[in-house]
């Protein structure tokens, strides 16, 4: 059996959690586009923060 690359599972788990956070923010906000702009703004802000963290790509810090 081939040996997996280091941190394969840890990176997978980390990204899965981050992706779920964005899905959750977006899916929670969508039904409130017309009636709760603050909630939508918060979801967009949260998504920007999570996606910004992933875009920064500081893998070593994520897996500490």
């Amino acid at each position: 059996m081939v040996t997996a690359a280091p941190h394969t599972v840890e990176l997978d788990d980390y990204l899965r959690d981050m992706i779920r956070a964005v899905y959750s923010a977006v899916d929670t906000a969508r039904p409130h586009l017309a009636d709760d702009p603050k909630r939508v703004d918060q979801a967009i802000e949260d998504s920007e923060e999570v996606l910004g963290t992933i875009m920064a790509g500081k893998v070593d810090e994520w897996l500490e």
Binding site: A4, A5, T8, L11, L15, V22, E48
Partner: peptide, 27 residues
Amino acid sequence: LVVARTAAEEIDHFRKMARMAGDIGTD
């Protein structure tokens, strides 16, 4: 919200590919 969801889905595609690569020893 569409942009955020789209980006997250593409990152999830990356995650699946990265896992598959990692499983065969490729980081």
